[in-house]
Measured scan of single mutants.
Amino acid sequence: MTEYKLVVVGAGGVGKSALTIQLIQNHFVDEYDPTIEDSYRKQVVIDGETCLLDILDTAGQEEYSAMRDQYMRTGEGFLCVFAINNTKSFEDIHHYREQIKRVKDSEDVPMVLVGNKCDLPSRTVDTKQAQDLARSYGIPFIETSAKTRQGVDDAFYTLVREIRKHKEKMSKDGKKKKKKSKTKCVIM
């Protein structure tokens, strides 16, 4: 069974824990209790493949930012979460993405942009803004509501699919490099 290491990042209060708990335990946590770091595991079937999701729910508070490099190193894919009623959390996505790329030393890291709290009427981040940002990053965008469960499975499952595509691409690139290195030079 394939294991996928997913990391949920975003500013404090955007609903990272609520999304994760909704996926794992099928219930909505409405009281806000700032996370330092929590880890969850769940076995699911995605596109006919049974897999184990190892999900790291991270601290959004700035005082825990020193811990970010460590979990970013171990993560295979990242859910970059903002709240649709919090423009600052949307603007912060850029910083999370840049930090992930720096730590992973790669421009090509599996990510999904997630606009959470889409059940709320007080939207300050337009869907088109988020779609445009995701398009500019070359990553999928999904709106979710941890409260109603809308888009929750889709967000995590899409990230797994992005990781699969990335692994497939990397193995193809690896095979191309191996083929090239088999060419021999004969000096007579």
Score class of each variant (00 low, 15 high):
121 P>N: 11
102 R>V: 04
77 G>C: 09
109 V>H: 02
84 I>Y: 15
126 D>P: 05
81 V>C: 09
81 V>D: 00
118 C>F: 08
83 A>Q: 14
82 F>Y: 12
101 K>M: 10
80 C>Y: 09
68 R>G: 14
113 L>Q: 01
73 R>I: 06
112 V>R: 00
121 P>F: 09
93 I>K: 00
126 D>R: 04
77 G>D: 00
86 N>L: 01
94 H>N: 15
122 S>C: 09
111 M>E: 00
107 E>K: 06
71 Y>M: 14
69 D>Y: 03
71 Y>K: 04
64 Y>T: 13
71 Y>V: 12
65 S>C: 08
104 K>G: 06
78 F>A: 01
82 F>D: 01
71 Y>G: 14
65 S>Q: 08
86 N>Y: 02
74 T>Y: 08
104 K>H: 09
124 T>K: 09
118 C>V: 09
114 V>Y: 01
82 F>C: 12
76 E>K: 03
76 E>M: 14
72 M>P: 07
84 I>L: 15
107 E>P: 08
67 M>A: 07
88 K>S: 13
66 A>D: 12
64 Y>F: 08
100 I>M: 05
76 E>P: 01
119 D>F: 03
88 K>E: 12
114 V>F: 03
118 C>R: 05
71 Y>P: 11
115 G>S: 07
96 Y>R: 02
108 D>Q: 06
109 V>R: 02
123 R>G: 14
122 S>Y: 10
113 L>T: 02
116 N>M: 15
102 R>T: 09
67 M>S: 13
114 V>E: 00
74 T>V: 07
78 F>R: 00
101 K>A: 08
121 P>D: 13
72 M>R: 03
70 Q>W: 03
126 D>G: 08
80 C>S: 02
99 Q>G: 04
79 L>G: 00
77 G>Q: 01
64 Y>Q: 14
81 V>K: 00
118 C>T: 13
112 V>W: 01
86 N>F: 01
99 Q>W: 14
96 Y>A: 07
116 N>W: 00
108 D>W: 04
66 A>V: 08
116 N>R: 00
69 D>E: 09
97 R>P: 03
108 D>R: 05
94 H>W: 12
81 V>I: 07
99 Q>M: 14
99 Q>L: 13
101 K>P: 02
98 E>D: 06
94 H>R: 12
75 G>Y: 11
64 Y>C: 10
63 E>D: 10
101 K>E: 08
72 M>Y: 09
113 L>S: 01
88 K>D: 13
80 C>F: 14
68 R>M: 10
80 C>K: 01
118 C>P: 06
123 R>F: 08
67 M>E: 14
78 F>Q: 00
